[in-house]
Structure formats: C-alpha cells, structure tokens
Amino acid sequence: MDFELNPEQGALLDAAETLLSRSAGTARAEQLVALYDAGEQSADGYDHDLERALNDAGFTGVALVDGMGPLEATLLTSAVARQAGCVSFGANAIVAAQLLGRTIDGPVALADTALPGPVRFAAQAVCLLVADGEQLRIIEAPATDLVDVDSNFGYPMATLPAELLAAGDIVEGVSAHRMRALWQLAASAEAVGCMQAALSFTIEYLKNRRQFGRSIASFQAVQHRLANCAVMVESARWLCAETAAHNAPAEAAAATATHTMEAATLLFDDTHQLSGAIGFTTEHALHHWTMRLQTLKLELGGAGAHALSLARLRWTDAEG
C-alpha cells in the first residue's frame, strides 16, 4: 500500500503536464469550439493535433509499456481532462489497451446497444467498441457520414444507427462486462480531472471575487460547500487510482463510477451556483469542465445504473 507516486510515475506525469500545458488548455478548447461552430472544413471539434502529440510521446500506449499499466493510463486520463483536452484518451489508453492489447491510431468511441442516444466522438471515431449484451463488437474504420447532434455538452457527439452497430465483428474471448468495467473507470478518471480543474478554478475565482466588501471565499456558507466538494473529489480520485491499480475489477469499477458520478452532480451544481451568472458564460472557463461532466455522468446509464450494477455484483451472482 503506497499512495505516493513512484519516481517513474512522477516523471511520466510531469512530462505529460508539460506537453498538455503546451498543446491543450482551455484556450485551445475554446479555439476548437470556435472553429467547429464556424463550420471550418477541417474542424470536427476533436483535437487531432493533441491526440497525435500524445501518441507520438508514447502516452496513449503507456499501459502497454513494461512496468506500467492501467494505473498510469488512468492518471494520465485525469491529467488530459484537467487541461480540457478534447480527445478520446481514456477510451484508447484504458479501454482499448486492456481489451485489445493495443491502442488505436485515432479517435475511439464507446457505445452500448442497450443505451441509444448520442455517443461522444461517434462521428470522428476510427474505431467503435460496442457492448452488445454479453458480447463485445469492434468496428474499425466505420462509414463516417454521421452528423453530430447540436449540443454544447463539451464533446462532439452523434447518434449511431443500429445497423452500423450490428455490423461490427465480435471480439472473441472478451465479454462486454469487461468492457463496461473499463469504461466505468475511464469515464470516472476523466470526470475526476474535470472535477479537480473545475474546483480549483472556482476556488481561485471566489478568492478574488469581492462582494459585501470581502472575498466571497471567506463566507462560511461558501467554504463548507467547497470543502464538501473537495471531500467528494478526493475520494473519487483515490477510488479511481485504486481501481486502476487492480485493473478495473467489475465490483470496484462499479463502486468507483457510482461515487464519481455522484460527485460530478455535486461539483456541477456547486461550482456553478457559487460562481454566479459569470459561470454560465463562455468567457469564463468553468464550462469547459462542467458541461463535460454531464456527458460523462450519462454514460452507461449514470450513477443510478452504476449503483444497481454494483448491488448486483456484490450481493447477487449476476455480472452487473
């Protein structure tokens, strides 16, 4: 048991953060959205440049490197999210890496046939991983005439037609349950990064924002809400790390996702409530993390569905 980063992990995160501070960040996220909204030909809302940089530096495949594993991929997934990187890093570095034993050279989208509705990165993906009941399907180089839905919840997203999902090849020897557990971990790791950034951004804003002749952050009513947020974020962060270190056992992944998505509800509500009207504007960076939290919260059916799956895994023989 050791919660401190070892030297290799420390160096890995430092290097990733250097890259991300150069190639990601909220200004970059804002730029991507602006190009996308302007209908720029090459702009599909996905940060292909960032993805290439992460691939070239070896970060995407970190879990497959000797001495590293899903824990390192999970720590990096949170780091990418803190810098508002709009890439499918977790789906690739955690889910694809563990399911396929390789990573994908391009965007990856995750879907579950039982959960219709828009899927993030569906139109951009060069690889779809689809949970279909008990089976896992893979669709590489899907026909990409999909059109994104009009949404500003932080990621480009499109609805996948049923015939496309059914067309995939079944991945033998890997169950859809395994994919869902890894997906729960990847979504949680990304949510943790978003929550950490949203909380520290809000704290800085509230320290500087003065009303009634004093810093808003000095009011106890405000402090208690921020402290409660910190408790939820810290616990989600450590649950993610522990679950990743054990390579996402089903029950641990379900517990992590349940708690993390509960935390996400609190973080969204409180960071916006405490920020006031400025928090809803695009000039204030908060939305880059919080709107994504809503998307992440809905994946795999959300906290309620994660909790149900956890209950089944722990107290019945079902597979979740």
Partner: peptide, 15 residues
C-alpha cells in the same frame, strides 16, 4: 432498494 444499497456501498468504499 438495490440502488440505495449500491450507492451506500460506494460511499463505504470512498470513506
């Protein structure tokens, strides 16, 4: 009932 139990279980793990 199962959802409540599941949420409580997750809170135990968090603590």
């Amino acid at each position: 009932v199962a959802e409540k139990l599941g949420r409580a279980r997750a809170a135990c793990e968090a603590a």
